[in-house]
Design a protein around this nucleic acid. Structure first.
Length: 274
DNA sequence: GATCCGTGGTC
DNA sequence: TGACCAAGGAT
């Protein structure tokens, strides 16, 4: 791996092509909210929601003092609404155990619900300038393509983790800067479907060939998830007794699942939790 | 490791 | 037009 070329991504490409994303100029709480929202959700859809949340709940304590139901409602149609509930739970933990602040240590971050390896590393780096190894799908795709000429497999391997660590440590670049640059590069140039190889500064050192990718295409039409989404969409407007759904068994599974996940409650009617 | 968890844009 | 995909995490 030619470090001089990789370094060029930061010094040249990122300097020129860096997007002005608002959470890059925000405080740790703004960074935290953005990282949760960005889990499996594109930047373009996160932007408006992030601004609304920032205005409505400018601190962890502000969100913690509001109800989880309001968080779920304000989540809107971002998808994976369990993230909203876990974000609220995280805010309560920050208020009660971390003095109302977002923790800075990866280990502490990992204890928060909805924070895994990637998110803990990202918040530590982007909110606090820590030297963490930040590896998302963009970084994986970019590094694995350079290294092997093929696309990454479904699962994040120990070899990839080691590779990412080696690269960060070999580069003479602050970890947070490399994290932002490598993620951005994967998102804008070394993309999944139609990578911009023609303008790629690493083309000379890359043997990637488009091949059969191992993709896991998830069904949605006809699944319980679709039913869950329909139920929540109704309840965001207010409590309800019944739901218009074609498959009664599936509707009951959806309601039971949402109830079990704490995303809805049953009193005299179905509603979002208080 | 496999499966589940939403939603909407794109080519 | 319908797969494919998007700054993952929990079980």
């Amino acid at each position: 791996m030619v470090m001089a070329l990789l370094d060029r991504i930061v010094s040249d490409w990122f300097a020129e092509n860096r997007r002005d994303l608002p959470w890059r100029e925000s405080d740790p709480w703004g960074v935290y909210v953005s990282e949760i929202m960005l889990q499996q959700t594109p930047v373009s859809r996160v932007l408006p929601a992030w601004h609304q949340w920032r205005q409505r709940w400018p601190t962890p304590s502000a969100l913690a003092d509001d109800s989880v139901g309001e968080a779920i409602r304000a989540w809107g149609r971002l998808g994976y609404p369990r993230r909203a509930k876990r974000l609220h739970e995280s805010a309560v933990i920050m208020r009660d155990r971390f003095g109302g602040e977002v923790p800075a240590d990866e280990a502490a971050l990992r204890e928060l619900p909805g924070v895994g390896e990637y998110t803990a590393a990202a918040v530590a780096a982007f909110a606090y300038g820590r030297d963490s190894i930040v590896v998302d799908i963009n970084v994986r795709r970019f590094l694995v393509r350079i290294k092997t000429g093929r696309d990454p497999a479904l699962t994040y391997s120990a070899a990839e983790r080691a590779l990412a660590k080696d690269v960060v440590e070999a580069l003479d670049v602050p970890s947070p800067l490399w994290a932002a640059a490598s993620m951005e590069f994967g998102a804008l140039v070394c993309t999944s479907r139609n990578p911009a190889c023609a303008v790629c500064p690493l083309a000379t050192m890359c043997d990637w060939v488009p091949g059969e990718r191992i993709t896991r295409t998830q069904e949605y039409e006809g699944t319980d998830r679709q039913a869950r989404g329909a139920v929540l969409e109704v309840l965001r407007s207010g409590p309800a007794d019944t739901f218009d759904w074609h498959d009664q068994d599936q509707l009951e599974r959806a309601l039971a699942g949402l109830l079990s996940d704490g995303l809805i409650v049953r009193t005299d009617r179905w509603s979002l939790p208080q």
